[in-house]
């Protein structure tokens, strides 16, 4: 699961006015021609520095999101309400960690070591999807995450799987295949509560109320006006605007909640005559405050991740070869 690639305001400010300065124009033309033809870029190919930098940032954020995304669900494994749900949740959490491996590999092909990426996560330098900075306080939250967050992630990943960087596309294809199980098990668990007792429905509605805003935030602020976005779209690093992806998600999933006689806590959430979903101002200040470290669970997520690193270190160290040189995965 994953949210959209996020550029912090500080990072946007660091952005060079001319990201193509100093590039070999002949190589650049060949590179862009290849992408325009629909060909994939492979790790050994020439690529502009900005393409490499943006892809590392995006794939790395995606990988971190898989690792951190497993935490709110992982903690519910011991409390799953039935054996079947427990098995499904264990399998899903294992898949998420597997996705992180696939994505770290894809990012490594661009030259950043796995150790450097993990360290940037642990220090808080790298971001991950903002939704995971919120707690999963009841079992209904787990069903909402499994259905709606994974559903949103699939919208994003299916679109990005058509991008230009070969290793990222291959990883996403495999991920999307596994996500279809996540979505089905999430939907099944959510519907089970929705058609259950009054208490179960109330618990689910409470979870929908709390997750509504993070879900609207999921695809990031509107980026239609961004000049930088145009270059990334041309290079097929970004395949759709945040607004378009959010709209596609709402179009697919709001009806699936409403058909259960449940709703999101927003009277303005409706499709207009042009087919565009409208919603109340989701308070982007809260989004920025959370992604910059001040959300309800940011500190806890990283502290748990650090704990895992420290407690797994003896195994990794016992097996490591001290003379090993850095090798990039092939593809």
């Amino acid at each position: 699961m994953y949210g959209n690639g996020y550029t912090s305001p500080e990072e946007a400010a660091k952005q060079k006015p001319d990201p193509l300065a100093g590039e070999d124009l002949q190589q650049l033309a060949l590179f862009e021609e290849r992408i325009a033809k629909g060909e994939k870029i492979e790790p050994q190919d020439w690529m502009p520095k900005e393409y490499r930098r943006q892809l590392i940032r995006m794939i790395e954020q995606h990988a971190h999101s898989e690792v951190i995304g497993a935490l709110p669900e992982g903690t519910w494994i011991t409390r799953a309400p039935s054996f079947k749900r427990k098995l499904a949740l264990i399998a899903k959490v294992q898949d998420e960690i597997g996705h992180a491996h696939l994505l770290y590999n894809a990012a490594e092909t661009l030259g950043k070591s796995r150790e450097a990426m993990i360290n940037d996560l642990l220090s808080g330098k790298s971001k991950y999807s903002n939704v995971f900075n919120y707690p999963a306080t009841t079992w209904a939250d787990v069903t909402v995450i499994g259905f709606l967050i994974d559903g949103a992630a699939i919208v994003n990943q299916v679109i990005n799987a058509k991008g230009s960087y070969g290793p990222y596309c291959r990883a996403l294809e495999r991920i999307c295949y596994e996500e279809s199980f996540h979505l089905k098990q999430g939907h099944d668990a959510l519907v089970h509560l929705a058609v259950g007792t009054k208490e179960q429905r109330a618990m689910l509605q409470d979870a929908l109320n709390r997750w509504y805003r993070p879900i609207i935030h999921f695809f990031g602020p509107s980026d239609k006006a961004s000049v930088h976005g145009t270059l990334l779209m041309k290079w097929k690093v970004k395949m759709a605007s945040n607004d378009d992806m959010r709209n596609q998600f709402l179009d697919q999933y709001v009806p699936k909640i409403r058909e259960l006689g449940l709703d999101f806590p927003d009277p303005k959430l409706n499709k207009n005559a042009e087919g565009i979903w409208e919603f109340s101002d989701p308070n982007w200040d809260e989004f920025f405050a959370t992604i910059n470290g001040n959300g309800p669970c940011n500190a806890e997520r990283l502290a748990v991740r650090r704990w895992a690193e420290e407690h797994g270190r003896w195994v990794r160290k016992a097996l490591m070869n001290p003379n090993q040189k850095q090798v990039l995965p092939l593809s």
Partner: peptide
Amino acid sequence: KTEMNIGEAWEP
């Protein structure tokens, strides 16, 4: 603060 050391992620 905690860090992963170079080489701890092994090789591909």
